[in-house]
Design a protein around this nucleic acid. Structure first.
Lengths: 302, 302
DNA sequence: AGAACTGCTGCATTCAATGCAGCACTGTCG
DNA sequence: CGACAGTGCTGCATTGAATGCAGCAGTTCT
């Protein structure tokens, strides 16, 4: 336990970029902090910081060490959670990095449902684009990632995967509101708004229009799906989103229509964890619940 | 680093079965040790020892914790070894648990060859039966296991696998020395010596004779293959061993003959590590060398 | 009943970790 | 060029957490 303290100091120094600055943040003297780091480097057998004229920076050994300690800390949490679990306590914490689409409906409902059964479990939910979500997994700052169309997948171990067709959203009086099938070219012919670059929906739209006669020509581009959802009600425009981020029976007068799948191939929503990691009980159980629910939704759409 | 000290104490107490006894072994007072353990349990949030009238014993939480710390310590060694490696040092330690057959020829040669290239690397070799070898992996007391016909394979991740036919060994003037093919029933008709129960060779012989007309009826049973190898030269008996434990051109006048494979199916020699573990560089490199050599030997026999 | 264990705890001591002040050095800016 | 604001590092005195000592309460075995 105590040792993780030393590691916290190391992490703090790495973050601050200077021993003195880190010492201020932690409220100890710089000399004490300096000595602890020197002592650690002695015991460890190698420098972990390179000394620059304007501070310090982790060297390769340091990076390796930080990675080790993060894994170790998370594993200790897992053990504690397992111990709590075997005394029937069902305590713990679940941290999730997810795409925007999960924020309004899906995750709140799922978390509330889980907490109804296990009130001792706490949650943290962070919005991340698909690159950042994977990064969060590998730094152990999130247990689970729930993202649309992840990119690298190297550290990402897939727990569940459900297809998500791209949908168009629009005002009820939009000319295309009743069109069937709804073609992509018709959507793009009129005014439309698209998500900004790092998002999966944008990526799929790019792929679909590449080489085609009808390019993307968005009048508004945004990183917020919530903004776009509201925007299409004001200017008669088309927006794009995946079904899990939209409710069928919602209060707003929004029409949601699946785009003809030949025009835009459906992407997939991935639930994943860091490859090879053993999750704490609470996270593992919640992942099981999510998996079941996702498969249920996928079946319902067929 | 320092924290692993506390863990060493915990391990010591678990081994000794009593705080006072452990304190004597470590040369500190029992009160100090007692307090450290209590403090740890406070920080950890749960008891890890159950207090019995005659001492203490790890409870379930404790077992979980010990497992965690062993993994953590070994991972720290891996990091240190990687750090040493990136400064070009090629230091480290490789610990191997292996079957007896590897002791006389194979491992000495392989280790010497490896150390010729990397003099900074040290080795430890422990003889283990196939159950114990796997246990050594899961307690992190060995990096690699090289065993004939392992049993459980749950924590055992196979790195390489080579078939090893059962061979009969005998004096040059034994009546069966020139028999071709050499049938198992002929071997068992005369006096023979067999390995004791936990060994793979014995297991395969049992399987081969089960239900057959010619049962095992060993006059001598031993846990030492070296003993058996020498014994067959004194009384005109047949012994059994796998090829890797025997040299073709050896000084002793011993005849080694492969038994007709329809009579006794060949077993396999497995090189393995703990499932999911990342080995220190030295161990990983040595495993690569072993794998190459084993495959070479397998090809040579075809 | 007494001896020999066990884990646990109050009190004094000790030693490792800390805070303070100051040194040597580097880069910046007037 | 020189004052200045940074940096990491170190000698010395102080402090506080960890230790040792002695003793308690409880159990088991002789």
């Amino acid at each position: 336990m105590r040792h993780l303290e030393t590691f916290r100091l190391i992490e703090e120094v790495a973050r601050a970029g200077s021993i003195r600055k880190a010492a201020e943040d932690i409220n100890i003297t710089s000399s004490a902090l300096n000595r602890r780091i020197q002592r650690f480097e002695d015991e460890f057998g190698s420098q972990i910081f390179e000394r620059l004229p304007h501070g310090v920076r982790l060297n390769t050994a340091g990076e390796l060490l930080v990675q080790h300690y993060r894994a170790q800390r998370s594993d200790l949490l897992r053990v504690q959670s397992q111990v709590a679990d075997l005394s029937g306590e069902r305590r713990g914490h679940v941290s999730i990095a997810c795409s925007q689409a999960l924020l309004p409906y899906f995750l709140p409902k799922q978390i509330a449902r889980y907490r109804a059964g296990h009130p001792g479990v706490t949650f943290s939910v962070e919005v991340r684009d698909r690159a950042a979500a994977e990064h969060d997994l590998s730094t152990f700052s999130s247990d689970l990632a729930l993202v649309f169309e992840p990119i690298h997948m190297v550290d990402f171990e897939v727990i569940a995967r459900v297809p998500q067709p791209i949908c168009a959203m629009m005002a009820p009086d939009h000319p295309l509101a009743a069109e069937d099938p709804l073609r992509l070219r018709d959507c793009l012919a009129g005014p439309h708004v698209v998500p900004s670059a790092p998002y999966g929906v944008r990526h799929l739209l790019e792929m679909a229009t590449r080489g085609g006669s009808m390019p993307l020509s968005a009048m508004v581009e945004s990183s917020s799906f919530e903004f776009m959802r509201h925007y299409v009600l004001h200017e008669r425009a088309i927006g794009f989103q995946i079904p899990i981020g939209l409710m069928v029976h919602q209060s707003e007068p929004l029409v949601v229509r699946e785009i003809y799948q030949r025009d835009v191939p459906p992407g997939a929503l991935f639930l994943g964890q860091l490859r090879g990691r053993t999750l704490p009980v609470a996270s593992a159980r919640f992942a099981v619940q999510l998996t079941a629910e996702l498969l249920l939704q996928a079946d319902a759409r067929d």
